[in-house]
Structure formats: C-alpha cells, structure tokens
C-alpha cells in the first residue's frame, strides 16, 4: 500500500519536472497568473471606475486619457476590460470546478461500482450527450434566471450562467474519470487491496483519486477556455450578464457589430479572450504531455 502512495507522489513530481522544462507551457502559466492577478487586483489597478460614464467621450478611440478608448456610454474600455477579467475568469474557473466535482463523483461512482449502476449512469450521460447543448444551455439558463431563487439581479444572472454552463460541461469529465477508474481498478495492487477487504471509500480515496489526478487536471485546464467561449456564446445570444458588469464575452459581443467604425471596441476584448484562451490551451497541452509518461520528452 505504501508503495502505491509513493508512485502517486512521484508521478506528480515527475510531471512537475517535465512541465518546468516546457517553455511554452511555463510562459502560458505565467500569463494565466498575470490575468488572475489583474482580475483580483481590479479595484486597485484600473484607471477609472468601470461604470463611470464620461458623456463627452462617448465612443472615443484610444487616447492618452483612455488607452483603449471608451464604449458607447463613454466608459473607459481598459477599466472595463480589467473588471471583465474578473467575471470571465470566475465563470471559467468556477464552472470548471463545479463540473469537476459533479463529473468526478459521477464518473468515479459509475466506474467503481460497474455493472447495473454503471449502465444506468451511462445511459443518462448518453441522453445528455444527445441533446443539442445550445438548447440545453439556453433553456436551463432561462429557467434558472426566471426561478427567482436569488433576489439580487446581478448575482442571479451570474449564478444562472454558472449553473447552466456547469450542467452542460460536466459530462465529458465524467466519461474520462469513469474510463480512468475502470483502468485503475484492473491494476494488480488495487485488486490486491480489494481482495484484502479494504473499505470501498478508502479504496477510492487512496488509490483511485491520486491515479486519476493527472488526466483530471489536464481536462480541467481545457475546460476553462471552453467555458469562457461558451460564456461569450451566451453573450452573443443576448443572454449574457447584467449591466453594468460585463465579461470579455459581453464586451466582444458589444464590439463586433461595429468593427469597421469603432475597431477598438472589438479588438481589445478580442485580444484578451484570445490570449487567455491560448494560454490555457497551451498550458493544458503542456500538462498533458507532462502527465503522460509515454509522451514525456517527445514534444
């Protein structure tokens, strides 16, 4: 039993060493840390309040006063971008974690118990997979939002978005976790422990979880950018966040229609989305290579 623990630890350790060698992934990692820092420090680093309207400056291009110009209400784009990072990252990260928790629990349950439980649980996943995610996203978002569970309208929009996105995105995680659990279950030491009568919960906690950690971290990293994308898609549909708060998706959706006249409205949030998503994807790639012993040293 002790041996398996060491394997687990050294696996993570080796992965870390491999990751450190990967320059692209490291740069991406720092970029992500930077974006998170910007999001956290928003109130202190943004040059103007994000909702202050400068009516003499409506739709002005980049200038010394407003580096990234102003929007259609004369609000500073840079400040809105910085505050937007908060929401976008929150949506990306929180959703990823919620779907991680649901997905891991579900997948582990299905994989561990197998048999009847497994096929019932997988049937549900089959159904969810066959509903066009776009309609599920819209309907769930609208139903949650109209349900009046939360009084504060801003919070309501945000939570309903988080819930809708999580509900759509946990399925792929559950599938992967189940596959991994099935694999680990067959390994000799797990079988040995099992035959020795170790308790179910302990088995899952001690042997399964550490072993599936790698693939899960990788998936998580890929999940965040696709959440950010899904959020921008909802903004495109007009189901985005409450004003005056706005995410990068909301800003980008505000901007693309007037690309030829006011390019700054589209370019700034566009670049922000692009850089953040690229960084997450590259980091995810690096992590995957690092966690996959077969792939290590080949990139």
């Amino acid at each position: 039993m002790g041996a398996s623990k060491t394997t687990g630890r050294s696996l993570q350790h080796e992965a870390w060493i491999a990751l450190r060698k990967n320059k692209v992934a490291m740069v991406s990692g720092f970029l992500i840390i930077f974006v998170c820092a910007v999001a956290l420090l928003a109130p202190w680093i943004s040059p103007y309040p994000f909702d202050e309207q400068y009516l003499d400056q409506v739709l002005a291009g980049p200038s010394e006063r407003h580096w990234f110009g102003t929007d259609s209400l004369g609000r500073d784009m840079l400040s809105r971008l910085i505050y937007g990072a908060r929401i976008s990252m929150a949506v990306g990260v929180i959703t990823a974690f919620v779907s991680l928790i649901i997905g891991t629990a579900y997948g582990a349950l299905a994989g561990w118990f197998g048999g009847w439980t497994d096929s019932a649980l997988m049937r549900i996943i089959d159904i969810l997979d066959s509903i066009p995610s776009i309609i599920l996203l819209i309907l769930v978002k609208l139903v949650f939002e109209a349900a009046d569970i939360i009084g504060n309208p801003e919070l309501k929009a945000l939570t309903s978005m988080l819930l809708a996105l999580s509900l759509v995105s946990w399925v792929s995680l559950a599938r992967v976790v189940r596959g991994q659990v099935l694999q680990v279950k067959q390994m000799s030491y797990v079988e040995a422990a099992r035959s020795m009568g170790a308790s179910q919960l302990r088995m899952v906690a001690q042997h399964i979880l550490p072993n599936i950690l790698g693939p899960v971290i990788v998936l998580l990293t890929f999940q965040i950018p696709s959440n950010i994308l899904a959020e921008s898609f909802l903004s495109f549909l007009g189901l985005g966040l409450q004003p005056p708060y706005s995410s990068w998706g909301v800003l980008a959706n505000d901007g693309w229609r007037s690309m030829s006249s006011y390019p700054h409205l589209m370019i700034t949030p566009g670049v922000a989305i692009f850089v953040a998503m690229l960084a997450f994807n590259l980091l995810g790639d690096g992590l995957r290579d690092a966690f996959d012993p077969q792939m290590r040293g080949r990139a």
């Binding site: 998706g249 693309w256 989305i273 692009f274 998503m277 994807n281 590259l282």
Partner: peptide, 11 residues
C-alpha cells in the same frame, strides 16, 4: 491550430 481554437467565431 491553437489560435484557431482560441477565438469565438463571432469575432
């Protein structure tokens, strides 16, 4: 390939 994945299509 990564860049292609990193922008919403409406942009």
């Amino acid at each position: 390939a990564m860049s292609g994945q990193s922008l919403p299509s409406f942009l």
